[in-house]
Computed example of a mutant assay.
Amino acid sequence: MKVFINPGHMPGVDSGAVNPNSGLKECDVALAVGKLVEYYLKNAGCEVMRLQSDNLNGETPVYPNVCKTANDWGADIFVSLHCNAFDGYARGVETLVFKFGSEAERLAACVHKQLVDTEQSVDPYILDRGLKERPNLSVLRNTDMPAILIEMGFIDNDHDVVLLEDKQDTLAKAIARGVTDYANS
């Protein structure tokens, strides 16, 4: 299976959300977890390409185009990694797909289950925010393969940020298990 990993945002260009207390940046969490997911998937026999770029679909031509690269490479699945932010109180994990009833929803269900089960084993108060349709997101709309976007937790929440900061390896293993569950189903 060819898995394309897209750590969200881009250091030095667009950090994404930032924790107001620690300064932890979404782009850094996404990249760290993305590298670990890549490692675990390669060890499981997957072919993996990872790209973090501020150019999702041609809007920033100076950087590599994420959707075009995934499509041209012929990825079987696409996984984009992110951290949510809202008001400092919202928390939990959610997984986004272009459309319910699609193959992407099946992929999302496998990954989301592993991620929620893992996060709740570390912190029983982590909320399962479920699967959500988001047809307006470029990486879900402009990819040719089943694509998901994972919001691993709320980086601006004091509880979720502990997972995002201290449990990156645990999160990566859960995501990789979800991908392999999907591949084996």
Rank of each mutant, 00 (worst) to 15 (best):
R50W: 04
G101E: 03
A70C: 10
C67N: 09
V111F: 01
S15I: 08
D14A: 11
A183V: 10
D158G: 06
V116C: 12
K2Y: 02
N136W: 15
S138L: 14
G74C: 08
F4E: 00
G12C: 02
I5V: 09
A109M: 13
L171H: 13
G74Q: 06
A75C: 14
S138P: 08
R129M: 12
V18W: 06
L171T: 04
I77A: 02
V111C: 03
A104N: 02
V93D: 08
D156V: 09
D144C: 11
D156E: 05
D117P: 08
R141I: 09
T60I: 12
G45H: 06
C27V: 11
D166K: 14
E94H: 12
N55W: 01
T118K: 13
V179T: 00
F86V: 12
T143L: 02
K2Q: 08
L140V: 02
M10W: 03
L36I: 06
D128P: 10
N57E: 06
C67S: 12
Y182D: 00
A104D: 01
Y39C: 13
F4Y: 07
T180I: 11
A104Y: 04
G153Q: 05
E119N: 14
F78N: 04
P135A: 11
N57A: 13
L137Q: 02
K167P: 04
H159K: 14
K68C: 04
G16A: 07
A174Q: 01
E151N: 05
T118L: 06
Q168K: 14
D128I: 02
L107R: 01
N21S: 15
C67Q: 06
Y125E: 15
G23D: 12
V13S: 07
M152W: 08
M1N: 02
E119R: 15
D28M: 14
V111Y: 01
A109F: 07
